[in-house]
Amino acid sequence: MTTLAPLPADPSVDGPGWTAVCPLDALAPERGAAALVTASDGEELQVAIFRLVDGTVHAVQQLDPYSGANVMSRGIVGTRRGTPTVAAPVYKQVFELATGRCLDAAGKEPRDGLAADLAAFPVVVTGGVVHVGLG
């Protein structure tokens, strides 16, 4: 989820669970990018990062629960009734970017063992650098 403005009083983005991913400029507006980030327990995870036209940045899991492929960053960004969304590129499910909630399952069920919604992660942009926190 987005916590760009206002920022937390003193964002502790250096601690474990936070990864400095890339400069904000490396992200094209409304086009996702994949990143490898490390959780505090050392597990490496793929996330999809999206920069919107207003400069907001969102991060959700890269794993598409409906296809089982790591492709969410390659979906089309848009809005549904004003809410920023991403559409899965494989079977076109629509997810709310801020929460990861699935808004339209496109008549499909998620793969066995996967949740219908995406996990959403906190993002902090500081000093022109995008940080993702997995906790």
């Binding site: 086009r31 296809s67 790591n70 492709v71 390659r74 494989v90």
Partner: peptide, 21 residues
């Protein structure tokens, strides 16, 4: 320019996405 953000993944990557991405 902005056109890149409009393309389906296939047009964006100029290739055909398969089931495993």
């Amino acid at each position: 320019g902005e056109q890149a953000a409009l393309q389906d993944t296939n047009d964006h990557m100029l290739a055909n996405m398969q089931k495993d991405g």
